[in-house]
């Protein structure tokens, strides 16, 4: 029992590792601040493309969505970081992660937005168009606010997944939270920093998960 506590809950080691972990948390936060908005914007754009009247654009977009949803994000990331240099495209770990997440997130957010837009009856678009609004105005002022509201729980839930998924950035040596924790672990030969990282994720995500649960409850009614 003592050995267990010593290797997983060693507060001495945790406090020594904390500056490193806090720096890692900063990188994770920065990563989230970049990839979440990028994914939301990319996803909305892609969703609108997937609902376009032009069949080429529509099917092309849907094929891309399917592709990026089917490729495991880890594989995608390694390909971008280690594969692209063979095509003379070399990206920093941070940029590589942002590109990978942009492609992956846009596809997921796009599917959510698409479902949201389709959940708004066609009558809304028609009513708006009948008063002279352009299609884009009808989308912005009438359809998208309702669409977003209808899929808010899914958007939030996907965002939680994204935050958790940023830990895969550790494979390209980006010093985010998990990478920092693992570094501390290998230096101290002790797993407590990993437990500490898990605790930090939990601390940050738990309120969001709670909020989501409340929201789902409300929308479900």
């Amino acid at each position: 029992m003592e050995i267990f506590l010593d290797s997983f809950f060693n507060f001495q080691i945790m406090s020594e590792a904390s500056p490193l972990l806090i720096r890692g948390l900063g990188t994770t936060a920065l990563l989230c601040l970049v990839v979440i908005p990028l994914g939301l914007i990319g996803g909305l754009t892609v969703a609108l493309m997937a609902l376009s009247r032009s069949p080429w654009l529509r099917w092309g977009t849907i094929a891309l969505i399917d592709f990026f949803r089917a490729v495991p994000p880890l594989v995608l990331l390694i390909f971008i970081y280690s594969g692209l240099p063979f095509a003379d495209i070399e990206l920093s770990p941070f940029t590589a992660v942002c590109v990978g997440f942009f492609l992956n997130n846009s596809a997921y957010y796009a599917e959510i937005y698409r479902a949201g837009i389709e959940s708004v009856g066609v009558g809304q678009m028609e009513a708006a168009r009948s008063t002279g609004l352009k299609k884009i105005q009808a989308l912005v002022y009438v359809v998208l606010p309702q669409a977003t509201r209808n899929v808010l729980p899914d958007l939030l839930s996907n965002t939680i997944e994204v935050v958790k998924l940023t830990s895969i950035a550790s494979v390209v040596a980006l010093q985010e939270l998990l990478y920092s924790a693992d570094m501390a672990r290998s230096v101290t030969y002790n797993s407590s920093p990993i437990v500490m990282a898990a605790g930090i994720y939990l601390l940050i995500l738990w309120p969001v998960v709670r909020m989501l649960s409340n929201l789902e409850h409300k929308v479900g009614k």
Binding site: G121, G123, Q124, E126, A127, A128, R129, S130, T131, G132, L133, K134, V142, P145, Q146, R149
Partner: peptide, 20 residues
């Protein structure tokens, strides 16, 4: 057509008010 539509009002069976 958008300017023309302003001069042609339409009322729908399902009202189609904007709920938000």
């Amino acid at each position: 057509i958008n300017t023309m539509r302003q001069q042609i009002g339409m009322v729908f069976q399902q009202f189609n008010l904007y709920p938000h």
